[in-house]
Amino acid sequence: MTDRRRIFLLLAPALMVIGGLFLTGLGLTLLRSFRYMPALGLTDPDLAAYVAVLTRPDFLASLGFSLWIAAASTLIAAMLALASALLLRQSFPGRAVISFLVQLNLTIPHIVGAIGVLYLVSQSGVFARLARAAGMIAAPSDFPILTNDPDGIGIILLYVWKELPFITLILLSSLQTLGEDHEAVARSLGASRWQAVAHVLLPMISPALLSASALVFAFSFGAYEVPLILGANAPKALAVLAWQAQTEPDLVARPEAMAMAVITALIGLGLLLATLRSLRHRGLHAR
């Protein structure tokens, strides 16, 4: 009992931040999404904002777009990270330097990276200017459209660049705790190199890969600043659309903005829960 109390006391500061700031904000968001805003004379909560949002064609397009950028960035980043982790695990000359380089951009904020992408690969960016100087293109419009494009290529590019080191780092630490013994055992028992990786190593690091990927997915699904800078005017990422509704001059649009935020959060939360369940499921099987 005293132990429990002590733990609770030690956790209290963190709980106060989460409870006081986050949960209060979430609660207010929920209230407003149910169209409860006494300041505007809205006192009878209802679901009208959700109905309005879910029947808005631009919201559905944004939902699809956000799912697309999150899925594509997570998949590409996870595959590249897996490959880099497996390579960086081995010892070779210059490994320290390369592993430093791979992890360097962990410290760079997303927004700085996004502006960097804009400077590099936009139609009047550095690469476009180099291409023009080399006589490969005649005008900015000849350069391929990689930023502010409706397919979100620039956004995916930035997320892959930014999240690859994150997943790599988690995989490397997971690999470190496993050691190399299991593979060596499999090999000595006659498994081919590929079989040792696919049937022994991969299943062992897949929990780390899955949880890291889920975090990356949830983040890129709900983030605001990258699609704001690198996205097109349509379709907008969910967070950008929600902010646009939140700043719409007509105050009556606020509940819709809140409903969008709640739906975004629910999808992210659902995904994380599903990942957690699948991890627990695997854990039981492994035992």
Binding site: Q123, S124, P140, S141, I145, N148, D149, P150, L228, G231, A232, N233, A234
Partner: peptide
């Protein structure tokens, strides 16, 4: 339009940059 109208600049700042860059 620019980019055949498939996308539009999202802010006046972006249009000003397009003009400054001669796009």
């Amino acid at each position: 339009l620019w980019r055949e109208g498939l996308t539009y600049p999202t802010s006046i700042i972006q249009l000003n940059e397009l003009f400054a860059n001669g796009e």
